[in-house]
């Protein structure tokens, strides 16, 4: 075997080992790398009460209640398996609405609810024109 071929085999083995190691590290870090808790993650488990955490999922349809003061809202986060009621006071992003994704930052309460001090909207990976989505949003483009 020529030295060149030996280096080729060694380098490819090393590359495979590096990529394999990063895949293993990723699956091992799955819980630590998670950006948010889903409602099912905390169901039936001790709540992380003392820490500032994020709760993510979908805003349950028909669950948003706006208080009379105009800035306080309550809604329910669901992931299809469990739900968590959330209370928040402040301005929500435009994309925050029922049936779409949300990430709430705040603290769990002893009663299992969640008090948020910040709301992020999480949108999905689909992009389509308003007609295809079936809503009657005006379809003008920037040109017109």
């Amino acid at each position: 075997m020529k030295a060149k071929h030996q280096r080729l085999v060694l380098a490819l083995l090393a590359l495979g080992a590096i990529l394999g190691a990063s895949a293993l590290a990723m699956s091992a870090l799955k819980d630590q790398a998670a950006f948010f808790y889903a409602p099912a993650d905390v169901k039936g488990k001790p709540l992380p009460l003392d820490r500032h955490v994020r709760l993510g999922g979908m805003v349950e349809r028909g669950s948003i209640r706006r208080a009379d003061d105009g800035v306080s809202i309550r809604f329910v986060v669901t992931d299809g398996q469990a739900t968590v009621p959330v209370a928040f006071k402040g301005v929500t992003p435009d994309l925050f609405k029922e049936g779409s994704g949300v990430v709430a930052e705040g603290k769990f309460q002893p009663d299992g609810s969640f008090v948020a001090d910040n709301i992020l909207a999480k949108h999905d990976e689909r992009y389509m024109p308003p007609q295809a989505a079936g809503n009657m949003h005006e379809t003008k483009t920037l040109a017109k």
């Binding site: 999480k122 949108h123 999905d124 389509m128 295809a132």
Partner: peptide
């Protein structure tokens, strides 16, 4: 593999309507 704020793959999975793509 992780849950993130960033949405999943759009382009390779064909989740973008052709009129926008």
């Amino acid at each position: 593999w992780w849950n993130t704020l960033h949405q999943g793959e759009s382009v390779v999975t064909g989740k973008i309507h052709i009129s926008l793509l």
